[in-house]
Nucleic acid binder design. Structure first.
Length: 280
RNA sequence: AACUCGUUCC
């Protein structure tokens, strides 16, 4: 039966790792053979918890048990290391994959590319992008979002926009996350006009904006001191049925605070507390 | 059937 596997992965997703690992041990005691997915679920859980030591010990255990690691196993561990900025420590894992004949897949490349984008290494990210193309692996929206992100952070908006258009030209319709990333780039670089023209484009192609879209636009206005405009956006999102989250309110609070309008800042904070969110 | 990647505040 698939019962144990489902229970273990379910508990790992809910971060109930103690229960998951106990159930895993019980399962083995009962003579049920553990699978690679059981291990991957646990590795994922402990990686998310930040306990990489435990995650790696599960990887060692599976190898000892003669259970074949998959590309997912490595993707999980490489991702966890990259999120902690430990790029170098991931090198031996990539080497190990190659030694075992495990082929890097689209997700592996996306993890590597995103990692380098997050730390501002656009060169390395684009090199990996070229490498995946040369291996016949097609970049996805996930890949492009990372590349747009790093270009935006480096204020290379022309290139970010060109890339965005190029992707559309390839017949890949942008999704909401790609839009949000590009909108954020324009907001962070003070081009609210283009940011709003992208919002309009989203509406045109029926990609519904979400709270991230609006939070991003609100923040763009706030950083220019136009908190009133940001408030109008808060109303607009409510009107459109998009629920503001704690970030929406914190954006307004910090917008008012930066301007020294503490009275308004506290007013928004009270409104936020009134609906059960906590300020940060 | 079940495991892995991208966007806003922090």
């Amino acid at each position: 039966s698939y019962t144990y596997g489902s229970l273990i992965s379910g508990m790992c997703k809910e971060k109930r790792l103690k229960e998951a690992s106990e159930m895993f041990e019980r399962m083995k005691e009962m003579g049920v053979a553990p699978t690679v997915v059981n291990y991957n679920s646990l590795i994922d859980g402990y990686c998310n918890k930040g306990d990489l030591e435990r995650a790696f010990s599960y990887k060692d255990e599976m190898i000892k048990q003669g259970i074949v690691t998959t590309v997912s196993t490595y993707n999980l561990l490489i991702h966890a290391l990259f999120m902690e900025g430990k790029m170098v420590e991931a090198d031996p894992l990539v080497k190990e994959m190659k030694d075992k004949g495990i082929v890097l897949d689209e997700i592996t490349y996306n993890i590597l590319i995103n990692g380098y984008c997050r730390c501002g290494n656009a060169k390395k990210a684009f090199d990996l992008h070229d490498e995946m193309l040369s291996k016949g692996i097609h970049p996805s929206r996930v890949t492009y979002t990372s590349l747009i992100y790093v270009l935006s952070k480096q204020k290379r908006m022309k290139e970010a926009d060109n890339l965005f258009e190029k992707i559309i030209g390839k017949g890949v319709p942008p999704d909401i996350i790609m839009f949000n990333a590009l909108i954020d780039g324009y907001c962070a670089n003070g081009n609210m006009q283009r940011a709003f023209s992208l919002l309009k484009e989203m509406d045109d192609i029926k990609v519904s904006p979400d709270e991230v879209t609006y939070n991003t636009l609100m923040r763009g206005h706030c950083r220019e001191g136009r908190v009133e405009e940001a408030c109008k956006l808060l109303d607009e999102m409510k009107r459109r049925g998009i629920k503001p989250d704690h970030i929406s309110y914190n954006t307004l609070i910090s917008g008012y605070s930066r301007r020294g309008d503490m009275k308004d800042a506290f007013r928004v904070r009270d409104e936020m507390l009134g609906i059960g969110f906590n300020p940060t």
